[in-house]
Computed example of a mutant assay.
Amino acid sequence: MSTHTKTLTSTLSSVLLASACALTMTMSATAAPAAAPIAVSKTAPIFYGDGGKYPFSDAVRVGDTLYMSGQIGFKDGKLVKGGIKTETKQALDNIQAVLLQYGYKKSNIIKCSAMLTDMDDFSDFNKVYQTELAKPYPVRSAFGVAELAAGASVEIECIAAK
């Protein structure tokens, strides 16, 4: 091989090597970053119960917080008799059962919402509520509503946290 050919080959090799390096650097700079591994959230919702024949879950846990569906005074598939006091007691017993089923207790309740069909029953409702829950009481909202499922007088919905 002549000196001229060796020089030309060496020059071409250097140019090709430099071009390949430049192309690689350009591709690296413009390429999409590698996909990060998918993080599994420790607070993804966990749905409990199927609501039976109704389209809702009994409760949903997100992290250490349990969000419960509202409870009325149902026992053995029918509304208890006896009015607001009896219904309130049964609704709170039902809440207790849901809490225990999913590893919580009444002292874990942090928020309740109460719906009453007659706000004149508010005092009687409070008497039962006060005997069933202990201080410090959860924060609470109470609403007067026109009607509740199954002709109930009261429905109570709670959130519990550990």
Rank of each mutant, 00 (worst) to 15 (best):
L66V: 06
I109V: 14
E157P: 01
N126W: 06
A44M: 03
K53V: 10
A146R: 13
K127N: 13
K105G: 09
P136N: 02
F74A: 10
Q71P: 01
P55Y: 04
M119R: 05
S69M: 10
S57M: 04
L8R: 08
L100R: 14
A35D: 08
C158N: 03
T9Y: 14
F122E: 06
S141V: 01
I46E: 12
A161Y: 01
A31P: 01
A149H: 11
A149P: 15
A91E: 11
T65Q: 05
T65Y: 04
K127R: 10
G151H: 10
A150S: 09
D76I: 03
N108L: 05
D50I: 07
F122V: 03
S69W: 00
A149L: 13
Q90F: 10
H4N: 12
G52W: 09
I38D: 07
Y137N: 02
S153N: 10
K105I: 07
A20S: 11
T3A: 14
K105M: 07
S13M: 09
Q90R: 15
A134Q: 14
I46T: 12
S141G: 05
S19Y: 03
I159S: 05
V15W: 06
P37A: 10
A134T: 09
A97Y: 11
C112P: 04
P138V: 00
V80T: 13
G51E: 05
T9S: 15
T9R: 15
C112T: 13
K106E: 11
A152R: 01
A39I: 09
S10G: 15
Y129F: 14
F143D: 01
P136F: 01
L133P: 00
T65P: 01
P45A: 11
T3K: 11
M1N: 10
M27R: 09
G49M: 08
S69C: 08
S57L: 00
V80Y: 13
Y104K: 09
C21V: 14
L79V: 13
K111S: 09
V128E: 12
K106Y: 01
L133W: 02
A36Q: 15
A34Y: 02
Y67M: 08
A39P: 00
S14K: 11
T43I: 13
K53Y: 14
Y104P: 02
I84C: 08
S14N: 11
S2F: 09
D50C: 14
V40C: 02
G70M: 05
Q96H: 13
V40A: 09
L66G: 02
L12D: 05
A35F: 00
A34Q: 13
I156G: 02
P37C: 00
